[in-house]
Write a protein that binds this DNA or RNA. Structure first.
Ligand SMILES: [Mn+2]
Ligand SMILES: [Mn+2]
Ligand SMILES: [Zn+2]
Ligand SMILES: [Zn+2]
Lengths: 156, 156
DNA sequence: CTCCATATTGGTAATGATTTCCATTAACAA
DNA sequence: TTGTTAATGGAAATCATTACCAATATGGAG
């Protein structure tokens, strides 16, 4: 996480100066936590992790900053159906890069995959234009996800 | 909705006898309401609509039955991001058939589309098998959605 | 048709994630 | 160092969804 920290600091500088945002401990910590894991974390997960670095951070602050990070596109918020949102670094700031998810309907395990991106690009190109034209809708993003039963749940 | 009602009754018969479920007014009404609209309704939307037919239905009952209908595959539950779930009849019970959604990030307007299904099938076939193999995951469903700005929101 | 076992209902109270408030603190430009 | 103002964090409020539970209605057996 010290490595992650260094990396994090670098983004911050670039991203914040311009937007008028200030660089604060909680913000740095939130990005560090997300940069230091491959998992999809809930607001509370992040809060608990941040707490270890800065023992009097508020959960409110975590929520507030997560929202802000989502707004400026540094973090992505997902709803996989378990009742609370999960967060991860946006594609361009993550080692994972552009990817989608397999979600187990039973235990909510989430698997990242970035296979078959060539097929995806081909598929998207073939329809995005048609859709935005037909429905007068400016498409800025897409969501592709597969649902089913994970290995562990399948054995029961 | 009288037409919808007739149609609804027919399903009920087939679907319920077997599963051990009983046919009740609220259940009939919920399906009628969903069969009588093209919209994506929240639990409360449905509750208010049902209330007009059966003035002392409980919101709890609506939630309970929506969950049951989702479980047996007659209704589909969606989260478009507005903080409450939306429901619609499952593909095979709806005039809409298999379709996906365009969702406006600004006003949460939802547009159904079923264009380019040929491309979709081609795309899915090319990757579902590979994914389920590689990740030992039994895929039962998929979610394809486009996000962006609707016509109205684009003008502001 | 009547009766019974039990599935279902509907009000109310709990839950639990996320927001709102607001007085206090910290960032950072001058 | 100082002043302006963004940012924080604790507590209270929201709000959709669930859990409870006593009262009721359904559908099959007799
Ligand atoms: Mn991911
Ligand atoms: Mn739809
Ligand atoms: Zn699982
Ligand atoms: Zn819109």
């Amino acid at each position: 996480m010290s490595k992650a920290h260094l990396k994090t600091s670098r983004w911050m500088h670039g991203k914040f100066k311009c937007c008028g945002y200030r660089m604060t401990k909680p913000r740095e910590a939130i990005l560090d936590v997300l940069a230091g894991t491959q998992k999809h974390l809930s607001a509370e997960d992040i809060y608990l992790a941040v707490l270890k670095f800065y023992p009097n951070t508020g959960l409110t602050t975590v929520y507030r900053n997560l929202e802000m990070f989502v707004n400026i596109g540094m973090i992505v918020k997902f709803d996989f159906g378990e009742g609370r949102s999960k967060y991860e670094l946006a594609d361009q700031y993550s080692e994972k890069g552009h990817h989608h998810h397999l979600v187990c309907k039973t235990c909510y395990k989430v698997i990242d995959y970035s296979d078959f991106m060539k097929d995806e690009i081909h598929f998207l190109r073939s329809i995005e234009n048609g859709l935005s034209q037909k429905y007068n809708f400016r498409i800025t993003d897409h969501l592709i996800r597969f649902l089913g039963i994970c290995e562990k749940c399948g054995k029961k």
